[in-house]
Design a protein around this nucleic acid. Sequence first.
DNA 1: TAATCCTTCACCCGAAAGGATGATTTGATG
DNA 2: CATCAAATCATCCTTTCGGGTGAAGGATTA
Lengths: 143, 143
Amino acid sequence: MTRTIFIYGLVLAVAVFMLKMLEYKFFYRQLSVEIYIGIIGVLFTILGIWVGNKITRKKKVFIAPPVGEFKVNERILGEIGISKREYEVLELMAKGLSNQEIADKLFVSLNTVKTHTANLFLKLEVKRRTQAIQRAKELRLLQ
Amino acid sequence: MTRTIFIYGLVLAVAVFMLKMLEYKFFYRQLSVEIYIGIIGVLFTILGIWVGNKITRKKKVFIAPPVGEFKVNERILGEIGISKREYEVLELMAKGLSNQEIADKLFVSLNTVKTHTANLFLKLEVKRRTQAIQRAKELRLLQ
DNA sequence: TAATCCTTCACCCGAAAGGATGATTTGATG
DNA sequence: CATCAAATCATCCTTTCGGGTGAAGGATTA
């Protein structure tokens, strides 16, 4: 990235230099203003395309289809003793939300969410949220 | 594509028009040549970036629904540009391992793992590891 | 040969996550 | 009514994550 900017600057400098040369010819050989502008335009357009391709890498948006039906295993849910609220947190956690985002979505404080997650980790017997999500899917608590 | 070219032409025409106006000011208000060139340069650079983005445009790619057993979608893997090592990290990440644990398992430093994860987040266009795992499963890069 | 990619590692810094613990309120239930 | 679980929030502290940047060596390729 820094390199790209550097190269861009360099090319720009060279371009300006070349334009100065051109300017010289322009004044002494009666090159028309239009041609002058045209050359500058083409030059910078090419430069722009190049830079644009460098910084915004071409990308494709992949869209995956949703999969099949699913039924929550209520039995295990009760057996482990996961409360309604905790389950809500679990769901949002599995969607990849941060604790703060979950807190905002449920209209509670960050601390509350942290309490819920801590309880979930205890009940699911895991140490991290990634493991919790995994475990929950294994137990068919989540799709 | 034809449309893009057409729009490009249109914008070009507008640009030339604006430049003519500028030229007018240039001659009558003694705008310096450097500023004139600068404006033209910036204008056409922006134009170039825009055109570049239009040409190499992100397109939607729909992923085939899952049939039978799981098979890693090598095509997407290559298209997104995830390297072997990065994929290994992705797998371990999905198993719920921490960066440190991944580092130990792959016999590399924690910093290396963090570099890989950072690259993965870029390529998968996500912000967190939980999202990365999700996305990877959507794209059928992981089971 | 030069450019590019991959892999490796480092340092800094701020944000997020997690552990431990305690406290309050509310609703259900024996 | 007393009690218990659930839900809420807090504080303190440590660990983990993630962003940004730079750099070096090896492999591949134009």
